[in-house]
């Protein structure tokens, strides 16, 4: 756990001090859904997210994760996640890491833009970040104590087909999820949908924090679709969440999402928030560091 906090603190500190020159981000408000926009080449985005969830029949929890998102090229973004959680009246545990890649196969913009997503997850069963909901994930899965849950380790591969369109300022994104636990478990499926729009489409002539164009609001919906043997909505959980992002001129982005469970298998309430900073020119800075260029 100490390693997790040290790494997270180091990343955020680096974002604040070592790389003071960054650009104002234009980040989407989604926390679960992906749109087709990748990280700009050579840019590193350092992100921290929290999820507070209610738990019927057990203790509420606060799950959190740090993301390091790097634009390797204009068509490839790679990302590392470190996850942890605190279950109230129980304990705080490190729950694992994820390594994801997003690839844009088409050169130009189309009405629907596909992005291919591949992720490897090495996590334990105490994981509660709910970054995606898949298979028969239900609220009662979280009733197991941290001490027990962390003993079970999972290696998973996850694939997503991300489809996204931007029309008249609106973004519409659909993610289809397929994941496979490598310990001989069946394929599981899920979905995430999102729609969002900036509050104003034109930019102001002056820099401002509270201008409407700095706010992007929307809604996302996500849930499980069962597994290979029992595909469908039976015994699955689903959520709907209004979301908002505030892209500050000081290079930071704040996000807030209030999620509501749509059936009895879902957590009744999920509050998520996140803070991120994009560091442009990170790749060049690292390159200069190792090559000794000024």
């Amino acid at each position: 756990m100490r390693v997790y906090f040290s790494l997270s603190a180091a990343c955020l500190l680096a974002a604040l001090t070592v790389f003071p020159h960054s650009s104002r981000a234009q980040e989407s408000p989604y926390i679960v859904t992906y749109d087709h926009y990748l990280e700009e080449p050579g840019s590193l985005e350092v992100e921290y997210f929290s999820t507070f969830g209610t738990q019927r029949g057990g203790n509420d929890f606060h799950a959190f994760w740090t993301e390091l998102e790097y634009g390797a090229t204009a068509w490839w973004t790679t990302e590392l996640y470190l996850d942890g959680q605190t279950t109230f009246h129980d304990s705080t545990v490190f729950t694992g890491l994820r390594f994801e890649n997003r690839i844009r196969p088409l050169r130009r913009e189309h009405f629907i833009n596909p992005v291919l997503y591949f992720e490897y997850e090495k996590k334990n069963s105490a994981d509660k970040i709910l970054k995606e909901v898949e298979g028969h994930d239900v609220e009662s899965d979280f009733l197991v104590s941290n001490a027990e849950a962390r003993k079970e380790h999972n290696n998973e591969l996850e694939f997503k087909l991300i489809l996204s369109s931007t029309v008249k300022g609106w973004n519409f994104a659909e993610n289809m999820i397929a994941s496979k636990n490598l310990s001989n478990q069946p394929w599981e499926f899920g979905y995430a949908l999102g729609a969002s729009r900036p509050l104003a489409l034109k930019a102001s002539a002056r820099r401002c924090s509270f201008c409407r164009e700095n706010f992007i609001a929307g809604v996302e919906m996500y849930g499980g679709l069962g597994d290979r043997y029992s595909f469908g909505l039976n015994n699955t959980s689903h959520y709907v969440a209004p979301v908002v992002a505030w892209n500050l001129p000081s290079d930071w982005t704040l996000r807030l999402s209030l999620g509501f469970g749509l059936n009895d298998n879902s957590h009744a309430f999920l509050v998520r928030w996140g803070v991120s900073r994009e560091i442009t020119g990170f790749g060049s800075a690292v390159n200069r560091l190792f090559r000794g260029h000024p």
């Binding site: 050169r107 130009r108 034109k202």
Partner: peptide, 23 residues
């Protein structure tokens, strides 16, 4: 600006609303 030159390192900028791209 909208389509980028993805294979040459320029990202797509359609995430900026149309009026902003015209600006």
């Amino acid at each position: 600006l909208t389509n980028g030159v993805v294979r040459r390192g320029m990202p797509v900028w359609s995430k900026l609303p149309e009026p902003q791209r015209w600006q």
